[in-house]
Amino acid sequence: MSFRARHLLGIEHLAPDEIRAVLDLADRYVDLNRRTVKQSDVLAGLTQINMFFENSTRTQASFELAGKRLGADVMNMSVASSSVKKGETLIDTAMTLNAMHPDLLVVRHPSSGAVNLLASKVNCAVLNAGDGRHEHPTQALLDALTIRRAKGRIQRLTVAICGDIAHSRVARSNLILLGKMENRIRLIAPPTLMPAGVGEFGCELYDDMAKGLEGADVVMMLRLQKERMDGGFIPSEREYYHRYGLDADKLAHAKPDAIVMHPGPMNRGVEIDGELADDINRSVIQDQVEMGVAVRMACMDLLARNLRAERGRAAVGVMV
């Protein structure tokens, strides 16, 4: 197996063969998840803690389900009611949890880099479920799996990522992953929502949807992250929808078989037309949710294998 990582902190640290390893294994978990009896025991005996410092319904549910289907003991830490509110630092929380000997720690945090910090203080495998505007690696992996299954490959595609790129960790992780797999990437956003220096990553930048979508195989829409904005990025939602919201007219500029993606939750009528989002011929948004569980199962399975191997080596005193 070519997956070598100890933690899954970001796509940045993964090599293309590691990405392929995750996708290949996830394909098999898709099959498992479609059976009536969806049970495996590869994580049996392991403890998975989901620690979400930021509200999330979908991602947390997806990780929880993934862990349970693989037989792990899953615990959700509700941070709203925890000691974080009492002034305990992130490190203290991590050390406390670490003392309970978890094996897999799934963390979401509003600050970029917080999950990296946490990972440096614990003995278990850490999965980044989204940190600030930095990375959301499992989202990029599930997007890649969705694309590979819909398009038959994850290379040499033209992928347009549209919308609130500045505030999006999903965009960053996808940008890195799709770049590593040698795709042509276009970023489409109003200039106020385009992060500085992003052109140096080797992608093409557009502020016009029609031009940017020209000939695209994949159209990834992003949620307008109003909660991360401190005001004045766009004039109004209706003008944003008019210029950057995806509807059938704008989609007509892309390839006729282009697929439409969205990481959810959607703001219908802001970044995407409601009917288009539900169009099973174009939209793969529901597939993304399904792939999400499978990809998270694959990631946790692979990390657990490395964790067991590492502990095995430590137990027999082999230098690592």
């Binding site: 940045e12 880099g113 600030g132 930095h134 990375e135 960790r169 960053r172 500085a196 220096g197 990553f201």
Partner: peptide
């Protein structure tokens, strides 16, 4: 400082 590095790190 804004730029490529800041964007990559999401800071």
């Amino acid at each position: 400082t804004s730029g490529k590095f800041a964007s990559l790190r999401g800071l």
